[in-house]
Structures are given as structure tokens and as C-alpha cells.
């Protein structure tokens, strides 16, 4: 028994060390293994109707598998497991709203970003078109957050009113006490989705800060990285990237979010 395990381990190590080309391995196996969220709509979740995994990340993973001409095999993950799944070679890629950070780059590789989040604003439709429009408004924030500090730093002249939490700030916006509120766009989306009069409001088409999400890859797989980057850029060129985005965040969705980042944009 021990011998078998030792053999298996050495084989695994051996294979990893010598024929270390993941791209060929994937093609040979005919399966692309991707880690995605299963309960984080609209990025990755189980569709309650079809009981199949769905979401923006899942669509991107599907496009990658299709381009390779292999079958897609999804592995459910949570945020904490994303790096271990990659480093332990349980999956080939991670497509799970994976924010690119220098800290994470020490352990995994990232593709070019295919999604961006950031600190944005909610205001009545048509009020906020460009960042300079902020200067003329009273803006509500969550007391003591980094968003408050950043807003004061970037717009020292803007009157800022701080509330205890985001729902209270939103109430103040709906009452007209402030003309805009600012938070991370994911939080703003959730807030807007539940508002009875959400048709009157929209999320700003620009952001104060930016965070970028990319596909997570194992380190040292240059051919695989090249393939993923080229495919993502191709998705943008053919308009597929926009189609995928619109399916989850477009004007017809429950909580529309203007698309202000395209694959290949400078970061």
C-alpha cells in the first residue's frame, strides 16, 4: 500500500516536473476543470430553474472550454478555496470573481482582467454622467468607511453627509437629503435591486477606485496563460464579452450596471 502511494506521489511529481504543459494535458484529457462560485449571483450560482451552474464567470469558463474544444467541468468553490484548489492542481483555472492583487500573484498567475469593480455612486437617472458632476452634489456615505475617506480626499469641496449604514444613506437619497450615495458597486447593486422605486435611480457609469478580476491560473504555465489571454481578447473583439456582460448586468436585468470596462482596457 505504502509503495503504491509513494509510486503515485513520485509519478505525480515527476509528471508535474517534466511534462509540465497544462495546455497539452487539458487537450489530451478533453476536459477543462474550472473552479467557480456556486452561490454568488450573478457571478456563479446554481440556477434555481435548471439546477445548473450559471453566471458571468461560468459563461466565460464555457467560452474558454469551447475555444479549446474540450468539455467544461465546474468545481464549486468559496473565496477561501480558490488559491488552494489551483496550487493543489485540483482545477486548471479559477473563474470566481477573483480580484487581482499583488499578494495573490505570489501564489497564482492571473489573466488579463475581464471584469472590474469599484467604488461607485447611485443617483437619480441622468444626474451623474461624469466624475466632475460629483462636485455640485451633496453625497451620502457610510460613516467611518474607506469610501467616506476617499470621497473627502478626492472631492474636498463636496458636502458629505455620513449615515450609520448604506440602507439609511439610501433612504436619505430617496428623501432628497443627498443627491448621491457612494459604496462598492456590488453593495449598491444589491441595494438597488430591492428598492421599490429603483427605476428612478441608476449606478454611475464611472468609478472612484478600481479593482480588477481575472482568471486565476497555476504559476509557470505560460502557454495556458497565453491561450486564456488571447481568448479573452477575442471574446471582446467578437462582441461575445459584451453579450455575456449584458446577460447578467445589461439594461434588461434586475439590477443593471453600466459596462465601463472592456477586456484589454488599460488598468
Amino acid at each position: 500500500m505504502k509503495k503504491t502511494i509513494a509510486l503515485a506521489v513520485s509519478l505525480a511529481l515527476f509528471s508535474g516536473a517534466v511534462w509540465a504543459d497544462k495546455l497539452d494535458e487539458i487537450k489530451k484529457a478533453g476536459v477543462l476543470r474550472v473552479a467557480a462560485f456556486d452561490s454568488n449571483p450573478p457571478f456563479g450560482f446554481v440556477d434555481p430553474q435548471t439546477r445548473q451552474p450559471a453566471g458571468l464567470d461560468v459563461d466565460v469558463a464555457q467560452a474558454l472550454a469551447k475555444k479549446l474544444g474540450v468539455k467544461l467541468e465546474l468545481q464549486a468553490t468559496n473565496p477561501a478555496n480558490r488559491i488552494p484548489l489551483l496550487t493543489a492542481n485540483k482545477v486548471d483555472l479559477v473563474a470566481a470573481n477573483f480580484t487581482i492583487t499583488e499578494e495573490r500573484r505570489k501564489q497564482v498567475e492571473f489573466s488579463v482582467p475581464y471584469f472590474a469593480t469599484g467604488q461607485k455612486f447611485i443617483a437619480k437617472k441622468g444626474v451623474l454622467k461624469k466624475p466632475d458632476d460629483i462636485k455640485a452634489l451633496r453625497v451620502g456615505v457610510d460613516k467611518g468607511t474607506t469610501q467616506e475617506a476617499l470621497l473627502r480626499e478626492k472631492y474636498p469641496q463636496t458636502p458629505v453627509v455620513a449615515y450609520d449604514d448604506t440602507p439609511l444613506a439610501f433612504t436619505a437619497l430617496r428623501n432628497g437629503n443627498v443627491q448621491a450615495i457612494t459604496q462598492d458597486d456590488a453593495k449598491l447593486l444589491a441595494l438597488l435591486a430591492n428598492a421599490p422605486d429603483k427605476a428612478k435611480y441608476e449606478i454611475s457609469p464611472f468609478a472612484l477606485t478600481r479593482e480588477y478580476q481575472g482568471i486565476g491560473l497555476p504559476r509557470g504555465e505560460e502557454r495556458l496563460a497565453k491561450f486564456v489571454n488571447a481568448t479573452l481578447q477575442e471574446l471582446e473583439k467578437t462582441g461575445q464579452a459584451k453579450q455575456i456582460y449584458d446577460r447578467w448586468f445589461g439594461p434588461k436585468t434586475k439590477a443593471p450596471l453600466p459596462r465601463d470596462f472592456k477586456i484589454g482596457d488599460p488598468t
Binding site: K143, G144, E148, A149, V161, A162, Y163, L168
Partner: peptide, 19 residues
Amino acid sequence: TMAIGVMELSYRSRQVDAQ
């Protein structure tokens, strides 16, 4: 009144703490 965004002393102490 810091609950409604009046920037009085308690509000400012929270702001200093957060910063």
C-alpha cells in the same frame, strides 16, 4: 444627532477613529 449626519463632537470622534 450624528445618526443623521450632524458633524458634532461624537461624529468627529468616530471619524478620527476610523481614519
